[in-house]
Every structure is written in C-alpha cells, then in structure tokens.
Computed example of a mutant assay.
Amino acid sequence: MSTTELAWFKSSYSGSQGDSCVEVAVTEQAVHVRDSKDVTRPDFAVGRDGWERFVRYAGGEL
C-alpha cells in the first residue's frame, strides 16, 4: 500500500491550525507516521505491538 492510499489523521491536540504535528495512518500490519509539515518526506512504519508499547511508555504506563 502506498502512502497516498493511507488514511492519515492528526491528533485532536494539534491545535486549530494543525500544522505542527505528526500524522498517523493505521493498517492491519503497522502504524505509519509522517511529518505533517512536509508530507512529501518518507514516513516510517512500526509494527502494531511496537506502537502500543510506545504509546504506553509515552503515557507513563511503563
């Protein structure tokens, strides 16, 4: 699946202008992340298990 086919979304915390954050797209296999200020740059993908661990860590749960 190309990155143009992914359904990208921004956090609701990104503010009213929404231009200073990352965008995320979720597939069955991975979570893709890209810079919302320059969507032409390559995104990176992490497995869903790795993303879950990252979110728990960032939320202070680990």
Rank of each mutant, 00 (worst) to 15 (best):
S2H: 09
S2K: 14
S2W: 06
T3F: 11
T4L: 10
E5H: 12
E5S: 14
L6F: 07
L6T: 04
A7M: 10
A7C: 07
S11C: 12
S11Q: 11
S11E: 13
Y13A: 12
S14C: 15
G15A: 09
S16T: 14
S16Q: 13
S16K: 14
Q17T: 15
Q17S: 15
G18E: 11
D19Y: 10
C21T: 07
C21A: 07
E23S: 03
V24H: 02
A25E: 06
A25R: 04
E28L: 12
A30L: 11
V31C: 07
V33M: 05
V33F: 00
R34D: 01
D35T: 07
K37G: 03
V39N: 03
V39C: 07
T40M: 03
R41E: 09
R41Q: 10
D43H: 12
F44E: 00
A45R: 05
V46I: 15
V46F: 01
G47M: 03
G47V: 00
R48C: 04
R48T: 02
R48D: 01
D49C: 03
D49S: 10
G50M: 02
W51H: 01
E52T: 13
E52P: 01
R53T: 08
F54I: 02
F54S: 00
V55P: 00
R56H: 10
R56Q: 13
Y57L: 10
A58Q: 09
A58D: 03
A58G: 10
L62M: 10
L62S: 12
L62P: 15
